[in-house]
């Protein structure tokens, strides 16, 4: 089972690396700026890994803690979006990597994060990624529609990831159950990706 999960995750990672942000612009030409906002984060590995990591972390802490992220995460994206143009040429790579490393380690350690801290982490991730998505907007983009699309996909992704995690890692599972170990292993991989990304960001 674990091997299957590893294969599936590797295949997903390869597919995600294979796509580029240019795909989102094809969607934009076809369906407009709302759908560009909704599809843009899904074509960026940083968004995908960080959003999943945040959703999984919230899901493992239980529905009562996780549900706060349903409003917090999209609002964070909306707050971050207008900050994007202020970034200029500054990359969010190091911040992304740091958040990945932190969330990955919390998952790997199966840490019991308080609700307030969880919301703060999710809000920080959302602001960083909102700004990163906002930095790439062209002057011809309708920012209101793009923001609506981004918030919508943020809400949908985080809600579905949390719910799937709640179903996968049941509250009754012991710390040594294969499900709990699988989540911790996933956390380890996310932390490793964060560490590699941080090294690359510091080296460049």
């Amino acid at each position: 089972m674990k091997q299957k999960s590893v294969r599936a995750l590797m295949a997903a990672a390869i597919l995600l690396i294979g796509t580029s942000a240019a795909d989102a612009h094809i969607v934009a030409a076809r369906l407009g700026d709302f759908y560009m906002g909704a599809s843009h984060p899904l074509t960026d590995l940083q968004d995908v890994v960080l959003w999943i990591a945040t959703g999984v972390l919230a899901g493992t802490l239980g529905a009562s803690k996780g549900r706060w992220l349903i409003p917090v995460f999209p609002v964070g994206l909306l707050v971050g979006l207008p900050l994007g143009p202020l970034l200029g040429n500054v990359s969010t790579e190091l911040a992304d990597a740091t958040m990945m490393l932190a969330i990955g380690m919390l998952l790997a350690a199966a840490a019991q994060v308080p609700t307030l801290l969880l919301c703060a982490i999710a809000f920080a991730v959302a602001i960083i990624r909102g700004a990163a998505n906002g930095a790439e907007l062209g002057p011809e983009t309708d920012r209101l529609l793009y923001a609506a699309g981004l918030a919508y996909v943020g809400y949908g992704s985080i809600t579905l990831t949390m719910a799937l995690t709640v179903v996968f890692k049941r509250a009754s599972d012991s710390a040594t159950s294969w499900r709990a170990i699988a989540v911790r292993a996933l956390g380890g991989w996310i932390a490793a990706i964060g560490l590699m990304m941080a090294s690359l960001a510091l080296a460049s």
Partner: peptide
């Protein structure tokens, strides 16, 4: 399907 998936997710999370 997306709407039903989100309804299911909300139900699971008790949101």
């Amino acid at each position: 399907l997306l709407v039903l998936a989100l309804i299911w997710a909300h139900r699971r999370l008790g949101a």
